[in-house]
Design a protein around this nucleic acid. Structure first.
Lengths: 211, 211
DNA sequence: TAGATTGTTAATCGATTAACAATC
DNA sequence: TAGATTGTTAATCGATTAACAATC
């Protein structure tokens, strides 16, 4: 029943709006215009208005946007009232860092389990959860229906786990591996974080500038 | 002297091409057509050809692309022959994880220094380098001219360090903070990795699917 | 009422996709 | 030569920006 389709570029901009508006709220600013906000963000007033209007326009003509309203609306959109259950797969260096990240910030998630294949890691405490053997993944999903999985395992392990997740109720994949979950199963909503790709493309741009 | 302008979307796709082509090379595949590669990547043959042609077309009409040539060309573009010197700023959990990341993969970088403000972290070994006091940053940059900085400090610290980096020879910023280096100094080439934003936007999409 | 600023439609811009001539 | 596939131009699509009427 996904009513009106919001484009991906707009969705990706929402968290940034939310951060800036939260700052404004903290500073006690009551009202802001699209052009003021655009100047802060380095974008155009048109884009700000177009973006906000995807969600039904919470501004007032002649006045601007009430910071408190804007903040509440963006928070509702992004945090959605109740936290999503997320599981961490892979409790190595990256996985552990991400587990802290998930739990610390108010990002709209609740870490409910962590898994690893390495016996040395099983039983370790990771914030609110204890690392389980990855062989318990399917059973855990069946019993608890987590909605999102953070993938912090090597590519081959991700490929092996993909069918297990596809059979579960997991819909969202926060993917740090190179395995392409979206290609494997179009039903997944995938957010890739390709750190190596990111750093490489930065390298290309920096080298380019000097040539 | 930045000759032909390559668009950002194309640049961002290059690392993925490189990974897939490296796999093909490992599998001993000699030649590949744009349509075969497109099928693997989940894109169109047109896009593959358009992208490769930004760099002067290394295919052969009637035949396709020689995997070895493709691999060599992409490697040259992305790794650029010699490694870029990179410094790590912030040796907390995230910074340490990223230092391993930078050093381990063949991403075209050489970690040359790490900095932190916390006395407890100063002196720690981080792979090839030892964490220095951040007060030594300006002097280090002046003496060693690193080209890229990885920013793994809180937003306020990033804001304070921005002018220091702007005065140095640092051009590329791999930014994990929310401070906007591109806005502060348009001369920077910035690659933002906003993990919280990424996870939040995934949450929006997952919730959206169920409403 | 006059000034300001939104909501929304129209114009522009850029990126992706399709088509096809060149050529291996 | 015939078939295949690139390089490249043209068409389409979508996102951004500009314009302006509605309205606080």
């Amino acid at each position: 029943m996904s009513a009106n389709k919001i484009s991906l570029p707009v969705i990706k901009r929402l968290p940034r709006y939310y951060r800036y508006v939260a700052d404004l709220k903290d500073e006690g600013i009551k009202t802001i215009s699209s052009s003021e906000l655009a100047a802060m963000l380095g974008t155009t007033a048109s884009q700000v208005r177009q973006d906000f209007n995807c969600f039904g326009g919470f501004g007032q003509q002649g006045i601007g946007y009430t910071v408190e309203v804007l903040h509440a609306e963006l928070e509702k959109l992004l945090l959605g009232g109740q936290a999503l259950d997320i599981i961490l797969i892979g409790a190595g260096r990256l996985g552990r860092t991400m587990s802290y990240f998930i739990s610390q910030g108010s990002l709209g998630y609740r870490l409910v389990a962590a898994f690893d294949a390495d016996p040395a890691k099983i039983g370790q405490k990771l914030g609110p959860v204890e690392v389980q053997d990855v062989s318990a993944l399917a059973a855990f999903c069946k019993a608890n229906n987590p909605k999102v999985a953070a993938i912090c395992v090597p590519d081959e392990a991700a490929a092996e786990l993909s069918p297990v997740l596809a059979e579960s109720k997991v819909e969202g994949v926060w993917n740090f591996s190179h395995f392409d979950f979206g290609l494997a199963n179009p039903a997944f909503t995938v957010e890739n974080v390709h750190l190596g790709d990111s750093l490489m493309s930065l390298g290309f741009r920096v080298r380019k500038t000097n040539s």
